[in-house]
């Protein structure tokens, strides 16, 4: 079986974001780019599945839509252990044209399992995985916290309110994964970093599909009122403030 993990290239989560061009664009100066945290967990799980030979996973590929500036992030994924990468050479406008371009680029690659993180930490859209499934006409499960292969069959855990469901699904199939899919993201070892240099990144030219939405501008959050401190010896006073001032009880 072949696994595809879809990767988004995002600013490191500790970045203090700023905007330029009348607040129309992210100020990229000084930003460190990383694999989106959910996608990193998805990649880790894909590699864990491949490590166990009895699962019969031949390759783990990472897929991405972006310009050549994303290559360092794709190399990181290769260093962590992915076998190869596919990059659609396109500056996307929104989730719709990301998913559309990706679907066209991989339609004939016959992946059996496609893993997408449930959200990207930049636009917090939670949409690419579902859109990709629909473009490809594949079944999908969203909110997946476990992907296992038991006796050649896929066994998926979906998180639901107050519990979980265990599902069986056919291949090809898309899992939109969340917390729990892997414990800690896998870190690249020196050997992996060396090997990543020679692993292939296949560049696919885009169809230039139009976006359906457009960011007009960004705004910074309004500063919150300064914190009101209560003496630790008089902690009970907090409860009366919450009751009478904040009126939350």
């Amino acid at each position: 079986m072949k696994i595809l993990v879809c990767i988004s290239n995002v600013p490191d989560t500790t970045t203090k974001v700023k905007f330029v061009d009348d607040s129309k664009k992210l100020d990229v100066i000084g930003i460190q780019w990383v694999i989106n945290p959910w996608d990193e967990l998805a990649l880790t799980r894909a590699l864990e599945l491949k490590d166990d030979a009895s699962n019969g996973i031949q390759t783990v590929t990472v897929g991405h839509v972006g310009l050549i500036s994303s290559d360092p992030t794709l190399r990181k994924a290769l260093a962590i252990g992915a076998d190869d990468a596919i990059r659609v050479n396109f500056e996307s406008g929104d989730a719709y044209n990301i998913a559309a371009e990706l679907a066209e680029a991989i339609r004939n690659e016959n992946f059996d399992i496609i893993l997408c993180g449930i959200e990207s930490s930049d636009h917090n859209g939670s949409t690419v995985g579902g859109m990709l499934s629909e473009f490809l006409g594949y079944p999908s499960v969203t909110g997946v916290s476990s992907v296992k292969i038991e006796g050649g069959q896929l066994v998926i855990t979906r998180e639901i309110d107050g519990g979980k469901e265990i599902l069986s699904v056919p291949t090809p199939f898309v899992a939109v994964v969340q917390k729990g899919i892997a414990k800690e993201p896998r870190i690249a070892a020196m050997r992996g970093i060396m090997m990543a240099r020679t692993k292939p990144i296949k560049v696919v030219e885009p169809l230039a599909i139009e976006s359906l939405t457009e960011v007009i501008n960004y705004e910074m959050p309004k500063p919150r009122a300064a914190c009101k401190y209560i003496n630790a010896d008089d902690a009970g006073q907090l409860i009366s403030l919450l009751q009478n001032e904040a009126k939350v009880f």
Binding site: D94, A100, G130, M131, S140, V141, G143, R158, I160, L212
Partner: peptide, 24 residues
């Protein structure tokens, strides 16, 4: 809703109906 079921259905509907989506 922007919960797991909404996150499953809204993007598929976006493609099916060619409808732009803003989530959350």
């Amino acid at each position: 809703a922007n919960n797991n079921s909404g996150k499953a259905l809204a993007p598929r509907l976006s493609v099916r109906l060619k409808a732009g989506i803003v989530s959350g």
